[in-house]
Amino acid sequence: MGFFSFLSKEIAIDLGTANTIIIFNDKVVVDEPSIVALERNTGKIIAIGKKAQMMHGKTHENIKTIRPLRDGVIADFQSAEFMIREMIKMIGLKNSLFPPALKMVICIPSGITGVEERAVKDSAEQAGAKEIRLIH
C-alpha cells in the first residue's frame, strides 16, 4: 500500500465451472460463462464468455470451444489463464500506462488438492496478480 496504492487494484474472483464472476469496487463488473473459443490452427482466442457460449456446440472444424474448468478445478491451464486475463481486461481499468498491480482473492472448492490449488494461483499470477489469497 502506501504512496503507490493508486496503482494497485483489488479484485475478487469466483472462478466457477459454469460462470466466472469478478467483483471490483464492491460491484459485480463481470458475470460471464466460463468458456473460451479458439481458432484451431493459429491457437488465437476468438471470444470468451457469452459470445463463446453462443458458439458452443455450433462450431465448424476451425473453431474449438473449451470450458477450461471441469469439476471446479482448472483442467486446461492455458485457456484458463487466457480467460482470466481477458476477463480482467473487461473491467476496463483506465490506467494504461502502467499495468496495475492486482490484489486478488479467488474462491476455490474445498475438495481441491494441493496441485489444483497451485494451478489456480499460477494462472492468476500469469494473468498479472501480485498478491493472491485463496478462499474455500
Partner: peptide, 22 residues
C-alpha cells in the same frame, strides 16, 4: 448465483483480517 462472489468480495476487504485465507 452470486453469493460466493459476494463473499469473496467481502473477504477481499478483510484481506489481512481473515486468517483463514490461504
Amino acid at each position: 448465483l452470486r453469493a460466493v462472489a459476494r463473499g469473496t468480495g467481502i473477504a477481499l476487504k478483510n484481506f489481512d483480517k481473515f486468517t483463514f485465507l490461504i
